[in-house]
């Protein structure tokens, strides 16, 4: 299997603090890859450097999409999704005033070709696109098992439903790589188990790679093919769940403290 995402020598600092320090790892196509580390290890920072919400001080983020491999560093945030890389947010970012279906449709934003004039006049292309994507969005909600709520406004929906809505939204762009930012945050054990099953199902049905940044060991150990551990922004270890569990440095930095 070839690498879909390759991170080389990534560094970023805020003030004097090195949040990420010369970090390198790579994610293979089709795998579920976990990025873990103790609190404040810089997981989310790495994540934001990949998706270009932060501009790294040094290093490269190579991403392989349909036209070959590109370095994501320096691209605009809104361009990232067009390469087939989509993310979710730690504190679900949905639009409260919109229905679940409309929230999911935001994920298809880049797929629309109709101009604003065509949309204002509802010309055939605008109507057709809207109809087609609405059907796809409904399918994505069905896949998540929340299709019965599709017309309800997102504000007031339970947290679990919003998380699923966000996942459905991420699926709309037919992504090659989905990055999940702490998907298990705020979920109980049962919900976390269901989430693990769902993540596998997404990988299999939508044929994509999943990188998850996670705090919850239960989810990571259960679902990830490979795991990369970082601590204080530095690379610690990378391997399967069993390898990580047996790794001395990891135990010291992370698991040792937990147990």
């Amino acid at each position: 299997m070839s690498d879909i995402l390759r991170i080389e020598g990534l560094s970023i600092s805020f003030g004097g603090l090195k949040a990420v320090d010369d970090l390198s790892f790579s994610v293979r196509e089709g795998e579920i890859f976990g990025l873990i580390g103790p609190n404040g290890a810089g997981k989310t920072t790495v994540f934001n450097c990949i998706t270009q919400f932060y501009k790294p001080d040094a290093g490269k983020v190579f991403f392989r999409h349909k036209d070959g491999e590109i370095n994501l560093v320096g691209r605009k945030v809104h361009q990232i999704i067009s390469y087939g890389l989509v993310r979710t947010f730690q504190n679900v970012e949905v639009i409260r005033e919109l229905s679940l279906l409309d929230n999911v449709l935001i994920g298809a934003h880049g797929a629309f070709r109709a101009t604003i004039f065509e949309q204002a006049l509802k010309l055939p292309r605008a109507r057709r696109e809207e109809r087609e994507w609405r059907a796809k969005a409904e399918h994505a909600l069905e896949f998540m098992g929340i299709a019965d709520r599709k017309d309800l406004p997102a504000g007031g929906q339970p947290y679990g439903v919003l998380k699923k809505t966000e996942l459905a939204r991420a699926l709309m762009c037919a992504p090659n790589l989905i990055i999940l930012d702490e998907p298990a945050a705020g979920l109980n054990d049962n919900e976390t188990d269901a989430l693990a099953a769902l993540i596998r199902q997404i990988r299999d049905e939508y044929n994509c790679t999943i990188l998850l940044v996670e705090h919850d060991m239960r989810l990571v150990m259960g679902v990830c093919d490979r795991i990369c551990v970082i601590s204080f922004g530095k690379f610690l270890a990378c391997g399967t769940a069993a390898e990580i569990r047996d790794d001395k440095t990891v135990q010291e930095a992370y698991l040792g403290e937990e147990e």
Partner: peptide, 26 residues
């Protein structure tokens, strides 16, 4: 028509969450 299509959703996204809007390609 405008607010109930792709354009309107992009505006909603911009108001509701700038980071989500950007991540979705707006």
């Amino acid at each position: 028509n405008l607010v109930n299509g792709q354009f309107g959703r992009a505006l909603h996204a911009m108001r509701g969450s700038e980071s989500a809007a950007q991540a979705m390609g707006v």
